[in-house]
Computed example of a mutant assay.
Amino acid sequence: MTSHVPTPPRVALVTGATSGIGAEAARRLHQDGFAVLLTGRCGERGQAMARELGSNTACFVPADLTRDGEPDRLLDCALDRFGRVDAVVNNAAADHTGELLNVPTDEIRDTFEINTFAAIAVLQAAGRAMRQSGGSIINVTSRLATVGVPTMSVYSASKGAMKALTAAAAVELAPYNIRVNAVAPGMTRTPLYEAWVSSHKDPEALARKVADGIPLGRLATPQDVAGAIAFLASPSADYITGITLPVDGGYTAQ
């Protein structure tokens, strides 16, 4: 009698997976049948996420992606733990606001270190790990890679670089059957957003103003963005590469 060997599950690596969009992307991919390696800087939240998803199909590896070699170490951890890597969600990022003419050079460098340079390093490590079997890389950019908003110029530039890289990398990595796409969230109801709104004198008025500027009349939820990420990681998107998918309620269509 021939014994049946179960096919190993698909495996995803999610950076910035301890809160907001990254956490919801990890939950959604896990729900869709992926084993998930979570990474981020907050060990307490990361371990809690891994326990929530289940120790057999999820694990947390703390990492500072701005350190040399960390992205390769994460891919090695995923391969050692699960035996393969099918999708990488390149989500880790840092926010930045400030009047452009007064932004110190060190703040510009710090923003690009995590939002651009570290994200490029993750893409490179993912591509090397996927060269033999193919896979899907999903960069998380922003509506601000396309439109201008005062005080957000440095952040916009860091995300705009990733939007351009997505298209170029998709063409370069296509011979390896590696798909590279991006999602570009609009204003999303994350803890960072809640903290920003709460810091204003009239949070309710500000929230209404933000929603009124979006054609669909509401902010995105992390689940909205996670759904787009899950689609791009799925077999339904097997012939899609090089795109940036807006998840912004029509904001950039105006």
Rank of each mutant, 00 (worst) to 15 (best):
residue 163 K to S: 14
residue 173 L to D: 04
residue 166 T to L: 04
residue 145 A to M: 08
residue 146 T to R: 14
residue 147 V to G: 02
residue 154 V to R: 02
residue 175 P to D: 12
residue 128 R to C: 12
residue 134 G to P: 09
residue 151 T to L: 04
residue 142 S to Q: 09
residue 131 R to F: 01
residue 130 M to S: 07
residue 135 G to L: 10
residue 162 M to Y: 06
residue 147 V to A: 06
residue 145 A to E: 13
residue 146 T to V: 08
residue 158 S to T: 01
residue 135 G to P: 06
residue 133 S to D: 14
residue 165 L to G: 02
residue 135 G to W: 00
residue 140 V to A: 07
residue 142 S to H: 09
residue 164 A to H: 08
residue 163 K to N: 07
residue 164 A to I: 13
residue 163 K to H: 10
residue 136 S to G: 09
residue 146 T to K: 14
residue 152 M to G: 06
residue 168 A to P: 01
residue 157 A to T: 03
residue 132 Q to C: 04
residue 140 V to D: 05
residue 135 G to Q: 05
residue 142 S to D: 12
residue 141 T to H: 04
residue 132 Q to L: 10
residue 168 A to L: 13
residue 169 A to V: 03
residue 168 A to M: 10
residue 147 V to I: 15
residue 136 S to V: 11
residue 152 M to W: 11
residue 162 M to V: 07
residue 122 V to R: 09
residue 144 L to N: 10
residue 172 E to L: 03
residue 139 N to H: 08
residue 148 G to A: 14
residue 136 S to A: 15
residue 155 Y to M: 03
residue 141 T to C: 14
residue 131 R to T: 13
residue 142 S to W: 00
residue 123 L to G: 13
residue 132 Q to N: 14
residue 136 S to W: 08
residue 153 S to A: 15
residue 146 T to Y: 11
residue 175 P to G: 04
residue 150 P to S: 10
residue 159 K to A: 04
residue 163 K to E: 13
residue 133 S to L: 08
residue 124 Q to S: 09
residue 154 V to L: 11
residue 173 L to E: 00
residue 147 V to E: 13
residue 167 A to W: 07
residue 158 S to V: 08
residue 152 M to S: 07
residue 173 L to A: 07
residue 122 V to K: 05
residue 141 T to S: 08
residue 162 M to F: 13
residue 139 N to S: 11
residue 143 R to H: 12
residue 165 L to E: 03
residue 144 L to R: 06
residue 144 L to C: 02
residue 129 A to I: 10
residue 161 A to D: 00
residue 173 L to W: 11
residue 133 S to R: 15
residue 137 I to K: 12
residue 125 A to Y: 02
residue 128 R to D: 11
residue 130 M to L: 07
residue 124 Q to I: 08
residue 145 A to Q: 07
residue 156 S to K: 00
residue 153 S to Y: 00
residue 154 V to C: 06
residue 175 P to T: 05
residue 129 A to Y: 05
residue 168 A to G: 13
residue 127 G to L: 10
residue 149 V to L: 15
residue 139 N to L: 11
residue 154 V to M: 04
residue 171 V to W: 03
residue 138 I to Y: 02
residue 128 R to T: 15
residue 174 A to W: 01
residue 159 K to H: 11
residue 128 R to M: 15
residue 170 A to Y: 00
residue 155 Y to W: 06
residue 158 S to G: 05
residue 172 E to T: 04
residue 134 G to D: 12
residue 154 V to E: 01
residue 160 G to P: 00
residue 159 K to V: 02
residue 155 Y to V: 06
residue 125 A to P: 10
residue 136 S to R: 09
residue 147 V to W: 02
residue 163 K to Y: 03
residue 160 G to V: 07
residue 148 G to I: 01
residue 161 A to N: 02
residue 165 L to V: 11
residue 152 M to C: 08
residue 132 Q to Y: 03
residue 150 P to H: 11
residue 151 T to H: 14
residue 169 A to M: 12
residue 150 P to G: 01
residue 122 V to N: 02
residue 143 R to K: 12
